[in-house]
Design a protein around this nucleic acid. Structure first.
Length: 271
DNA sequence: CCTGTGCCCTGACAGC
DNA sequence: TGCTGTCAGGGCACAG
């Protein structure tokens, strides 16, 4: 078992659950320190947010949605963190934005690799209009996935990572779910049968739900120790385990590239 | 429309 | 020891 700490859907959900205390607070001001994220932080972000009240914080795909008088979308990218700090907190390297709140605390956006994003929209749904169903919703069913697989020559792994089909399934959980479903990541989507769709959908929901429940516990510990929020760590079966023995059969875990992403699987258990 | 490739960015790590 | 090269990957632009 190895541990990783990239913010996939469960990590984003855990962060959202952990910052509910900001709901109802007034935004006194916003300071941005680096405009060059995945897309530039809008220069009028502060003007837009100052004086407004945070009405709701929730997750859509891997975005954190902060509803005020407009919608603020926050994406953590690879290395992003959203931290609650008190008024004595001093900014450190890679803190790109601070939102000053009416209870004296600050919501701090920290992202060394700057793959993340912060932006305001009048309606967040317009920005995410091309996004598919939530993986943990009833809309993501085996029938839904099966229909999306029709006539698709791409691999099943690329398909479940395509946000137009289903959102929030990143590289790690795609690998893990395919392992648990016994399906090769290299298999063409169009030859996946209904029973395989049933298993795969169930396993995607399982790994995500499991990670969310584990994350809640880890986050609580993390907060106690550091008085701050961050994403957590997840135990894995195949991801990052190239050359190691498969837990189920002992065969060596393979690593192949699929659409540029490292893809870990067991040739014996997945076909 | 469908599919694959490359880019953005910094830090961790391997190899010399 | 310090340098260089490689890799990590979500989302999107772009090419074929």
């Amino acid at each position: 078992m190895i541990r990783v700490d990239m913010p996939e859907l469960p990590e984003v959900q855990t962060v959202v659950d952990g910052i509910q205390e900001v709901v109802g607070l007034k935004i006194l001001g916003v300071h941005t320190h680096c405009l060059k994220l995945r897309q530039p932080i809008q220069t009028d972000l502060s003007d837009r947010l100052e004086g407004s009240v945070i009405q709701m914080v929730f997750r859509r795909a891997k975005y954190i949605v902060v509803k005020t008088n407009c919608d603020v979308l926050i994406h953590l990218g690879m290395t992003g963190k959203l931290l609650i700090k008190d008024h004595t907190y001093q900014r450190v390297k890679h803190d790109h934005m601070e939102i000053h709140l009416s209870n004296g605390k600050k919501l701090v956006y920290h992202d060394p690799r700057r793959f993340g994003m912060v932006s305001w929209h009048s309606n967040y749904q317009d920005y995410l209009a091309h996004y598919g169903v939530e993986p943990l919703s009833d809309a993501f069913s085996s029938d839904y996935l099966y229909q999306h697989c029709r006539d698709r020559r791409t691999t099943i792994k690329a398909l479940i990572m395509d946000q137009r089909c289903v959102v929030g399934v990143g590289n790690i959980y795609a690998c893990e779910a395919l392992f648990l479903a016994g399906i090769s990541p290299l298999k063409q989507a169009k030859v996946i049968n209904k029973n395989e769709c049933l298993k795969l959908v169930a396993m995607i929901k399982k790994v995500l739900n499991q990670a969310i429940s584990e994350g809640g516990t880890t986050l609580k510990d993390y907060r106690t120790a550091n008085n701050s929020l961050g994403y957590f760590q997840q135990s894995l079966n195949v991801y990052g385990l190239e050359g190691k023995g498969c837990q189920a059969c002992g065969s060596s875990i393979q690593n192949v590239k699929i659409t540029g992403r490292s893809t870990f699987y067991c040739e014996h258990c997945q076909s």
